[in-house]
Design a protein around this nucleic acid. Sequence first.
DNA 1: GGCCAGGACTATG
DNA 2: CATAGTCATGGC
Length: 271
Amino acid sequence: MVFRVEDQVLSHWLPAAVGEGLLRVSAIDDQVLRLELAHRGDISQRAVEDYLSEWWDLRRDMAPFYNAFAHDPLLRDRLRQHHGARIVGIPDLFEAMTLGILGQQVNVSFAFTLKHRITEAFGQAFQHQGKNWWRFPRAEDLAGARPDHLRNMQISQRKVEYLLAVADAIAQGRLGRQQLLSMPFPDQIAAMTAIRGIGNWTAHYTAMKCLYQPQAFPAGDAGLQNAVKSILTMDQKPSVPVLIDIAKSWCGWEAYAVWFLWMGDGAKREL
DNA sequence: GGCCAGGACTATG
DNA sequence: CATAGTCATGGC
């Protein structure tokens, strides 16, 4: 596990860029988070705060979002149910693109099963108070993997090809987060979809979860289509052009609209 | 047991 | 350009 939630407390093994240690996060109230750190190395409080702020997109001013869409027919109920929710991102580009690829056309829980297998097979392992923790592997940890190894984890042949190619591109520096962040949004999508295996959905998913682009909008997303179909009681799923048209009203907040629709009317969902 | 999943590629008109 | 076939497997 990279993170787990127990009794309202999130435990998360920190990424290498922050330091070696276990972070626990709980809520004091709706405004204040309590951070607790069990660590072995030197970790600055500031680094942890910065990391968490990025991971949960905490620095974004959400007031305009709530103000603009309090009466939006598709969003109003979700905004009330999940008030205060933030996009839980994936700051690491390789991790985000990996989950995007794994999530193509399979149910979400299976995608996470595959991600956990990759994490425990290729990621760095740690022990803390008798429990095992992992970091998601770096691109270079996976770039040289034998295709059979991944194939045996029930990852399809095609996805194995996609994953290894993305791992190679990132490991060799032909693709990187800073590089993507340096370009305007449409160029980010174009740069990602130029890679075999990264289609429009995966590119927008990555832009949303890793690049924190509020205008990212995975229009072909099955979960999004079903959410809209359900809320508007349509008899069939809305097409991509229809969704793109709907999304015009969310201009600048498309990613958050998708996020709240994904959360549905229940409390549980995978990240 | 059949249909659907937080799709993308490839081949064919 | 539009459509159909293919991939793979779990969850319901």
